[in-house]
């Protein structure tokens, strides 16, 4: 063995391991933690109500909220409320999203649309659509029209912005490649630009789904007989906090289902990533 290989065995310096300084900054999902937190919180809440340090006037016990929910199921009112809400959501959200993708694509592709529509979109996007609700009632009637229109407008703008943002970020080299092989304009849009913008469009859909649920409740608070929002409003004005909690839980559930569906769509459409 050469001297070089034994260099470290000098007599006066005791060997110690190099301190580890890497790792961290990479949170990983731990599947069982979330249910534990959830169950613990509800158990604590129920316990507090039973023992009495949470007054039933301030917050009803989870079991009472659950009873209220079961009552909804028994009377069959749940389906009336859900059907009304889901219908508004689906029509409003899908129309808003489709129109948003269409207009976003125009802004992403054509100079004229970009210069004409982009400032308009930027100006209207930050306006809370709830503020426009009275106007929508005048324009589209007090019935379904104004409710769907609120959701439609609310989801339209974020989708437009997500779509043209996605198109702007499509690799220019891919477009140049398409041109260099003599692909038609339509082919380039259909096969290169839109698939390239799809990840951004889908994350836009995630945001607009959440916005749709917020606006659904707001819209249903005006002159709606059925709907989760109407149910919550009624419960609130009767101080029936158990029903209110049940309604809110229902909204949260709807949001989770929506997010899961979009997650599935991402998994399917973006499996190439």
């Amino acid at each position: 063995m050469s001297d070089g290989l034994r260099e470290s065995e000098g007599p006066e310096s005791p060997a110690k391991p190099v301190p580890f300084r890497g790792g961290g900054f990479l949170p990983k999902p731990r599947r069982i933690v979330a249910p534990i937190v959830f169950i613990a919180l509800i158990a604590f809440w129920e316990f507090g109500c039973r023992v009495g340090f949470i007054s039933p006037l301030i917050l009803p016990a989870p079991s009472e909220a659950f009873d209220a929910f079961m009552n909804l199921v028994r009377t069959g009112l749940l389906w009336d409320h859900l059907a009304a809400s889901l219908q508004r959501l689906l029509i409003g959200w899908s129309a808003g999203t489709l129109l948003g993708i269409f207009v976003g694509t125009l802004i992403g592709l054509f100079s004229l649309a970009r210069s004409g529509l982009q400032p308009l979109v930027s100006a209207i996007f930050p306006v809370p659509k709830i503020a426009l609700l009275p106007l929508f009632v005048i324009w589209f009637g007090i019935g379904e029209g104004s409710k769907v229109a609120t959701i439609l407008f609310g989801t339209f703008f974020p989708t437009v912005i997500a779509t043209y943002g996605g198109i702007d970020n499509v690799d220019r080299n891919l477009i140049r490649m398409g041109q260099s092989f003599g692909l038609s304009k339509l082919s380039i849009i259909r096969k290169i630009i839109l698939p390239g913008a799809l990840p951004a469009i889908l994350s836009g859909a995630r945001i607009s789904a959440a916005i749709a649920i917020i606006l659904l409740v707001a819209a249903e608070m005006i002159a709606a007989e059925y709907g989760v929002g109407a149910y919550i409003l009624l419960a609130g004005s009767l101080m029936a906090t158990d029903q209110l909690i049940a309604g809110v839980a229902l909204l949260s559930l709807m949001g989770l289902v929506f997010a899961w569906l979009i997650g599935q769509a991402e998994k399917y459409f973006l499996k190439w990533r």
């Binding site: 080299n173 891919l174 140049r176 490649m177 698939p195 390239g196 799809l198 973006l270 190439w272 990533r273």
Partner: peptide, 8 residues
Amino acid sequence: DFALLPWR
């Protein structure tokens, strides 16, 4: 940069 479509 090859210019391949990653989704194909």
